[in-house]
């Protein structure tokens, strides 16, 4: 597995970057897909957690608790091996031939929803209740009050944590190669296999650089977004 004869080749790290970058879109599709579906599921979970019914609250809190205790890779394996079996036996529908991406996005949707529902819950609770009451008292419907008054303010509160969850998801997404998805890491492993196991270190370093760059980039983007969204807040305090 390790080639001791060949010295470390730093130039290869740069040479291999363009080849790896061709698969960047796969990694990003996984992230974006999981964020979109995860946020939707997160809304539902937040609603459950804030519900007045004890049963609903227990379901919402229980879900987050269970997911928090599950290693991502185990959830990925359970979804990848279990979901097709479940669908076949319960719905008599074969999803074995579905694209690997489907299973990866399903897994990370489940994961992301758990953390994002906590973010949303605390953001919702951070907004003064008087805001909602004021909105309803001037004749907005409860949905309008939520959509126009609570959501914009809650978004600012939630943004830093949302950014953290996003970057965590980006990194966890690297596990997708373990079920055979050809993303950044998957393509890197293919190149290593083509070279009979050599260049492993160079390729993994190149991949680390790509991921590190993405993490820093997204961190900056979220900081910028935070600045932009809270511009009204600033004028008030200034």
């Amino acid at each position: 597995m390790h080639c001791f004869m060949r010295p470390f080749d730093p130039l290869f790290i740069i040479e291999v970057l363009p080849e790896l970058m061709q698969y960047l879109w796969v990694t990003l599709t996984v992230v974006v897909g999981s964020v979109v579906f995860g946020t939707l599921l997160g809304f539902v979970l937040t609603a459950l957690k804030l519900s007045h019914h004890r049963m609903y609250r227990m379901i919402g809190d229980g879900y987050t608790c269970v997911i928090r205790c599950t290693p991502s890779i185990i959830l990925l394996f359970i979804v990848f091996y279990g979901l097709p079996k479940f669908c076949l036996e319960v719905f008599d529908y074969d999803i074995n031939e579905f694209h690997k991406m489907f299973f990866v996005i399903t897994t990370f949707t489940l994961l992301f929803a758990a953390s994002i529902s906590e973010v949303m819950r605390s953001a919702y609770l951070a907004i003064d209740k008087g805001q909602y009451e004021a909105a309803v008292s001037i004749g907005l419907s409860p949905f309008q009050a939520l959509y126009r008054i609570i959501l914009p303010q809650g978004a600012i509160v939630a943004l830093p944590n949302f950014g953290n969850a996003f970057i965590t998801l980006l990194k966890e997404g690297a596990l997708a190669y373990t079920i055979g998805l050809i993303d950044l890491l998957g393509s890197g492993n293919l190149i290593i296999a083509h070279n009979y196991g050599s260049y492993a270190l160079e390729i993994y370093i190149a991949l680390s650089v790509i991921y590190w760059g993405m993490a820093i980039l997204f961190e900056k983007v979220f900081l910028g977004l935070e600045d932009r969204l809270s511009r009204y807040k600033k004028t008030r305090t200034a």
């Binding site: 890491l185 993994y204 680390s208």
Partner: peptide, 20 residues
């Protein structure tokens, strides 16, 4: 660096670096 890279990559880097 540690916070910006996936755990799995850190493992792979160390595991391919360490023996040599």
């Amino acid at each position: 660096f540690i916070r910006g890279t996936p755990m799995i990559l850190q493992i792979l880097v160390v595991y391919s670096l360490m023996p040599s």
